[in-house]
């Protein structure tokens, strides 16, 4: 690898969908694709916060020599000679099932419905437990609150199918500065819908000492 570094002066060369591209050493495959206007769908990715690879929608097939694997492009680091395909049979199988799962998890989100339709997924075979749900647990709200705002007013609670975004004990958290960043990054209407739980009724909150 070290000779490559010398040769390309901090840049690595790889191929995405047959197109030779160059990337900075510390870029991910997704960053490289975006830089080159190659579209890869995402939901839990946002430039403002660290990627966490949760929604898996950005999967691509990575090939190196005779080794190939499905990876998430938002986290996969670029490497000299890497070959990336953004739309293979395997990739599409993963993506279509994920979209179908999403239709069952957040059936009330029109953003999700539009996205699914774009990939030809119009209905779901999975059981819909909460018809009004819009949250896909991408965690952008949690990450932006911690990494950008720096207050950690919300977090994930529980795990697995019971996982949720909430404040401790699901009561308004005085740590919340009502900045609205969580609503801004939310890819659906989910965060707007739970604002009252997070910050309470703002008019009742005067005197709590959060007058930023």
């Amino acid at each position: 690898m070290s000779d490559n570094k010398e040769k390309t002066d901090g840049l690595v060369s790889l191929v995405i969908d047959g197109q030779p591209v160059q990337a900075k050493e510390d870029w991910t495959v997704l960053e490289t694709a975006r830089h080159n206007h190659i579209h890869i769908p995402t939901l839990c990715y946002h430039e403002a916060v660290q990627a966490n690879g949760g929604c898996r929608l950005c999967v691509v097939e990575a090939k190196e020599g005779n080794w190939s694997k499905i990876v998430v492009s938002c986290l996969y680091p670029v490497k000299e000679g890497l070959q990336i395909s953004t739309s293979t049979a395997k990739v599409n199988n993963v993506r279509r099932w994920i979209l179908e799962m999403l239709l069952a998890e957040c059936p009330a989100s029109k953003e999700i419905r539009t996205l699914a339709e774009a990939y030809g997924v119009n209905s779901t075979r999975f059981k819909i437990d909460r018809p009004t749900e819009q949250c896909l647990l991408c965690g952008l709200c949690v990450r932006v609150c911690e990494e950008v705002v720096g207050v950690r007013a919300i977090s994930f609670g529980s795990r697995g199918v019971n996982k949720q975004v909430a404040t401790p004990y699901m009561v308004p958290n005085n740590a919340c500065v009502a900045c609205g960043s969580c609503v801004t990054v939310c890819p659906t209407g989910a965060m707007q819908a739970r604002l009252n739980m997070v910050r309470g009724n703002v008019s009742e909150r005067t005197g709590h000492g959060h007058a930023h």
Partner: peptide, 18 residues
């Protein structure tokens, strides 16, 4: 640690009860 972290941990692991 902030309360969010403790609550998140306490609801994640099966051996804790609130």
């Amino acid at each position: 640690v902030p309360l969010t972290q403790a609550w998140s941990v306490a609801t994640f692991y099966k051996s804790f009860s609130l």
